[in-house]
Design a binder for these strands. Structure first.
Length: 968
DNA sequence: ATTGTGTGGTAG
DNA sequence: GATCGCTACCACACAAT
């Protein structure tokens, strides 16, 4: 079978990688071992058949594509993945046929299962077992069973029995061999040998087959019978077991002098717990099981799905009283682990996996008094406090206590927003503020939790999220703080905020804190009070702007104890705020690969995981980002942390799937391709981290929003969490179901090509596109025509779904509904333009009337998207803030707003006016605080005239419009 | 000018 | 035995168009 063009391209590309890496490997830092691995990688090129006797190669071939195939086969090639993807376009039967007649020896690889998901046997995806041993045991059992099955099939098909040459041997194959591992495996098994997939079952292994060993392995294997593959081949040829010594790879006297009796090699480390490296199929699971950070993220999702509720009173939450409780366990992990191990909590305790270069996840306050901090390495912490007690993680307990925590508090508040396993925001909307009641509530909660969980919580209470956060900081540990300032008490607020450190403010981490310090006072460390006093001059204000516009605004608001829009929407519309927008897996620990195939296998596993997660939440993705960490050129090959990533260069690449999908057989090849583009000029062994992100998520069906992870269904219907705000059911939306269904490719990418035009063009187009296509991805190519057509159609709609996605998420729920109706109308209007002119009846009049306010949307300077409009207004205000609005501009705006009133565009009007008010307020408060400051007011920055004019415009012209709407 | 990409930061 | 350095999201600079 000739190598087809696809393969050729792939081949060229893969060899170019290899070339570049071998160039690299010339320099001193690269070991010989790496070089030899690279040479081995050229085994990607199909090899000529070597077998002659015993079993013929053709006999082996007929078994290819058979289900008999190990999921840890190292023989997966990229060509395999690609060609499979091409073939999946064909009927599955055809594909299977071809597979059987496949005439080169890129044999069995697990991608075969991509032909048809149904082919995936359950054994391929190991179930979860209680422990690793159990898993191993089961797996080995399965593999032996498979071996028996294979023998039976061969004997049946070729009607002969095979001489039991390798009886009583147990053979393991290390690394690349020629013939391939799989072929050797079959030969060994057929001729009576046992085959070990893992060296972890070393106690039984009698021989190790290898053609090449890394220096490390040479040492490791020096007591074994390490034999070259020719031993197998020639033994079969000779029809008897030849002396292995003649084929020994390692010339080791002690072994050669050994008796030729086949005796199992018992090694010291046979009892050792098997080491899971990143090539092991269960590495991901085992890593995640022990990763605190992974648990944090998954728990957050779980808890939000299960316990989040939002019962604000009315649409405009910011105008009614709210009491925000920020509740947080004190050094949660340390406390719980301490309880579990009956440690005295007054002694320094920390939670960590290891004893040396291992992160401290949490330490108690006794430990903190020594200067120990979370995230510090144990070795360093022990320098600070030699008596520090290191406790293991107790993930189950953490999770369980967290569950109790939310269950106990769920009914006590109007709104519950879990932020983590150990902390959440809880909100009440009382009619009046009852200080005594609040502090009693705090005490009750603390008592309750302390009796039920034996853990202490701290509580910060205030009326904005920022202030609550700060209150919590000052309440810790084991206390509560209530700070509910009146609107008039600005000074008190400023003073309170000023008493904190830079990093105490949300969104200011150590990097930003350093930056701010550098900006204002490189020599000493400044506090928030320093920052406050610094901000009163415009030049200082501009300094802050170097952090970026958004962040500096945030900080200015925070310094006054006010929430920014981000915080507000988090509180007011949590379900909207915490909608799922992306899904990713990051692994930056334990990543050590030798060959590109191992990486591909790994990517396959990661993508499989992502795909199943996507499916479980009933979503599909159209964009991915792959991010790689490779160790920095001059940093040591092994970092101080065991299997850590060390210092790395990080690069990333985004790409798009041909359509929305959640199938790993579409995603995987694409992502691998991006990997190849990204990971160039570096040996595979320097890869230290991989992250794959899927974004542009879309639900399969907007009305049927699936569960996020394993959401429990014990909630009442009323409180049943939703990821999206409910959509109006009677309104045809822009993202109509039918259109979505077309966009979404969930099962197989087979297309009904009943479009006549396209069909005719296809043949012509194909020839051209093969010549000059950029993408080597068959899936992409396959979709190209389809997608183009789709886009053309969509372009006719003036409004794409993106408007909904981006613009709506910021708005309160009520407004979202209304604006969605607007878009529904817009869409109807557009569709009328397109097709309804010929067939005007396409929109029944009744339907139109049922949509609340059937008026066409009102553009502002040709803009329709509310976010775009406010953005334009923002720049307009910013540019004219000091000299005031120009009359004609102001007129334009007012006219626009009046039109909104006239056509009853309530939500839009409200949105715009509120926004304007907020903006002008923002500048006004800035200039006011500047002019209040005695030091600066004399020099510059009196309240500029422009501000007054803006205010005038706002108060006299704009705000009344909002009121008129209320009356109407 | 708008849109997309790669990078960086933060939180818990 | 070590060790388990995740992941969602936003913002921004800059390039591409």
């Amino acid at each position: 079978m000739p190598i087809n063009e696809n393969d050729l391209e792939l081949f060229l590309e893969s060899t170019s990688i290899l070339n570049s890496s071998s160039q690299n490997s010339i320099d001193k830092t690269t070991s010989n071992a790496e070089l030899s691995n690279i040479e081995h990688s050229t085994l990607l090129i199909p090899q000529p058949p070597l077998l002659k006797t015993g079993t013929t190669l053709s006999e082996l071939k007929t078994q290819e594509g058979n289900d008999y195939c190990n999921h840890d086969s190292i023989n997966e090639t990229e060509e395999g993945g690609k060609t499979d993807s091409i073939k999946q376009q064909e009927k599955n039967d055809d594909a299977f046929e071809k597979m059987h007649s496949n005439n080169n020896n890129r044999s069995c690889n697990k991608n075969n299962s991509y032909f048809n998901p149904m082919l995936q046997s359950p054994t391929r995806m190991p179930q979860r077992y209680n422990n690793y041993d159990e898993y191993m045991e089961n797996k080995i059992f399965q593999q032996n069973k498979n071996d028996q099955k294979l023998i039976a099939e061969y004997e049946k098909q070729f009607n002969k029995t095979y001489p039991q040459i390798f009886k009583n041997t147990n053979i393991y194959i290390n690394g690349y061999t020629n013939p391939t591992r799989l072929q050797l495996h079959k030969l060994i098994v057929l001729h009576g040998g046992k085959f070990s997939h893992y060296l972890t079952s070393k106690r039984n292994v009698t021989h190790i087959i290898a053609t090449n060993l890394t220096s490390k392995k040479k040492i490791e294997f020096r007591k074994y019978r390490v034999v070259q593959p020719e031993w197998i081949m020639q033994s079969i040829e000779a029809n008897k077991l030849l002396k292995w010594q003649d084929y020994a790879l390692l010339l080791n006297d002690t072994n050669i002098n050994n008796t030729t009796d086949i005796k199992t090699l018992v090694t010291k480390d046979s009892t050792k717990k098997p080491h899971l490296d990143c090539n092991h199929p269960d590495f991901l699971a085992s890593f995640f099981k022990n990763s605190r950070l992974h648990h944090l993220t998954t728990w957050k999702l779980e808890l939000q799905n299960k316990h989040m509720k939002s019962n604000p009173v009315g649409a405009h939450h910011n105008r009614i009283k709210k009491i925000i409780y920020y509740i947080d366990f004190d050094c949660f992990f340390a406390t719980v682990s301490g309880l579990k191990h009956n440690e005295n909590s007054s002694l320094p305790i920390a939670v960590s996996h290891g004893q040396g270069n291992s992160d401290i996840a949490s330490c108690n306050y006794a430990a903190r008094s020594f200067g120990i901090k979370n995230g510090m390495w144990v070795s360093r912490a022990k320098q600070l406090c030699s008596t520090l007690k290191i406790l293991p993680y107790e993930f189950d307990s953490y999770r369980k206590i967290s569950e109790t925590f939310y269950e106990l508090l769920y009914d006590k508040f109007d709104t519950v927003i879990p932020l983590s396993v150990d902390e959440g925001v809880f909100i009440d909307y009382p009619e009046d503020i009852d200080y005594k009641g609040i502090s009693e509530k705090c005490m009750d909660i603390r008592n309750l939790l302390s009796t039920k969980t034996k853990c202490t919580v701290s509580i910060g209470v205030s009326n904005t999220l920022v202030l609550s956060t700060l209150c919590l900081k000052s309440a810790k540990p084991n206390g509560f703080k209530i700070f509910l300032p009146h609107n008039t008490e600005k000074e008190a607020v400023a003073k309170f905020v000023g008493s904190f450190q830079l990093t105490d403010l949300p969104n200011i981490g150590h990097k930003t804190a350093d930056k701010i310090n550098e900006l204002y006072s490189p020599s000493s460390i400044i506090t928030l009070a320093d920052l406050q006093s610094n901000l009163s001059s415009l030049s200082s204000f501009n300094k802050l702007n170097k952090l970026g516009g958004k962040l500096s605004r945030k900080i200015i608001l925070y310094l006054k104890g006010e929430d920014d829009i981000d915080n507000i929407s988090k509180i007011n519309t949590p379900f909207n705020y915490f909608r799922k927008k992306s899904l990713s897996v990051d692994i930056n620990w334990g990543i050590r690969f030798q060959t590109i195939e191992q990486v591909y296998n790994f990517i396959d596993r990661v993508v499989a995981r992502l795909a199943s997660q996507l499916k479980s939440i009933n979503m599909a993705s159209s964009q991915y980002t792959i991010k790689l960490a490779r160790c920095k050129a001059n940093s040591p090959i092994e970092p101080p942390k065991y299997l850590g990533m060390g210092l790395c260069d990080i690069t990333s690449k985004t790409g798009r799937f041909p359509a929305h999908t959640n199938e790993n057989y579409i995603m995987s090849p694409e992502i691998k391709q991006s990997f190849r583009k990204l990971y160039i000029q570096a040996p595979i062994s320097s890869l230290r981290g991989i992250s794959i992100t899927l974004s542009n998520l879309k639900t399969n069906n907007d009305r049927d929003i699936g569960s996020m992870l394993d959401r429990k269904t014990n909630n009442t219907l009323d409180n049943f969490p939703r990821l999206h705000p409910p959509l109006p059911h009677d309104v045809p939306l822009t993202m109509s179901n039918t259109e979505n269904a077309d966009q979404m490719v969930t099962v197989t990418p087979l297309l009904p090509s009943n479009d006549n035009n396209n069909n005719n063009n296809n043949n012509n187009n194909n020839r051209r596109s093969i010549e000059k296509r950029k993408s080597r991805s068959p899936a992409r190519e396959f979709f190209n025509n389809y997608h183009k057509k789709k886009n053309q159609e969509r372009a006719k709609h003036h409004f794409s779904t993106e408007i909904d996605e981006n613009a709506l998420k910021e708005l309160p729920l009520e407004m979202q509904k209304e604006i969605q109706r607007e878009y529904a109308v817009i869409n109807l209007v557009n569709s009328t333009k397109r097709s309804a002119l010929e067939a005007p009846k396409i929109i029944p009049k009744k339907k139109l009337e049922s949509i609340c306010c059937f008026n066409p949307p009102i553009p502002f300077q040709k803009l329709l998207n509310p976010k775009e409009i406010t953005a334009r207004l923002d720049t307009w205000i910013l540019q004219n803030i000091e000299r005031g609005p120009r009359t004609d501009d102001a007129l334009l705006l007012v006219q626009y707003l009046r039109r909104l009133v006239k056509f009853n565009k309530k939500s839009m009007l409200l949105y715009i006016v509120d926004h304007l008010e907020e903006q002008i307020d923002y500048y006004r408060s800035y200039y006011r605080s500047a002019s209040d400051d005695p030091q600066t007011s004399s020099n510059h920055h009196q309240m500029p005239d422009g501000i007054l004019q803006w205010e005038k415009l706002l108060v006299l012209k704009i705000l009344p419009l909002r009121e008129s709407k209320n009356r109407a």
